[in-house]
Structures are given as structure tokens and as C-alpha cells.
């Protein structure tokens, strides 16, 4: 059970959060201009890597805010959290 540091509320138990999958997938501004393949890329394709992963989390049973987290999936350590709209910390690739 993770301890997650909500950027708005502080450290809380994982059970208060819901995970929203991979971060930094921006909804295309003009979906109608996209080919089926391009749209499918946005809609379906997600990374599932062993190592540093950028994820979206929602403090669902708390402040209800969405935020991003950097997690090492090999040991589940959350290395950093940052607000929506902020750039991911540079030291993680």
C-alpha cells in the first residue's frame, strides 16, 4: 500500500487515491483532422515499462485533484509528484 504525497494535501494512504494511467498524453486539439491510426495512437496506446514511469493520480477520496507522479515500477517508489500543467522533473527520463 503506497503512501502518496498529494501536492495539495500531503502524505496520504493509497486507498484515498485512484490511478489514471500514463501521464502527459494530451488530448489532440483537432481530433477530426487525425487519421484512424493517429487517433488510435492517442486512444489506445499506453506504455507499460519496468522503470521510471510518469502517471496520473487522483486524490479521489480527498481534495479530488488530479496530479502527476513519477514512479519507479520496479520497486514502486514514487520519486516525485507535481501538479497538472507543470513540467515533469528533469532528472527523470
Amino acid at each position: 500500500m503506497f503512501l502518496i504525497n498529494c501536492p495539495f494535501c500531503g502524505e496520504r494512504d493509497q486507498s484515498e487515491f485512484s490511478s489514471g494511467g500514463e501521464a502527459h498524453i494530451v488530448r489532440p486539439k483537432q481530433p477530426t483532422e487525425l487519421s484512424d491510426d493517429e487517433w488510435a495512437e492517442y486512444l489506445f496506446m499506453r506504455k507499460n515499462i519496468k522503470g521510471i514511469q510518469f502517471e496520473r493520480w487522483n486524490h479521489a477520496h480527498g481534495c479530488r485533484k488530479w496530479f502527476n507522479a513519477v514512479r519507479d515500477t520496479s520497486n514502486d517508489k514514487i520519486l516525485s509528484v507535481y501538479k497538472m500543467g507543470e513540467k515533469p522533473p528533469l532528472n527523470y527520463k
Binding site: 489514471g20 488530448r27 496520473r56 479521489a60 479530488r64 488530479w66
Partner: peptide
Amino acid sequence: LSKLEDYLQTEWP
């Protein structure tokens, strides 16, 4: 509600 919040906070702030 959580889906709408998601769009509001992340796609259309």
C-alpha cells in the same frame, strides 16, 4: 463526476 473533473482539470483547465 470524476470523469468530468478529469477533463476539467487536465484537458480544459
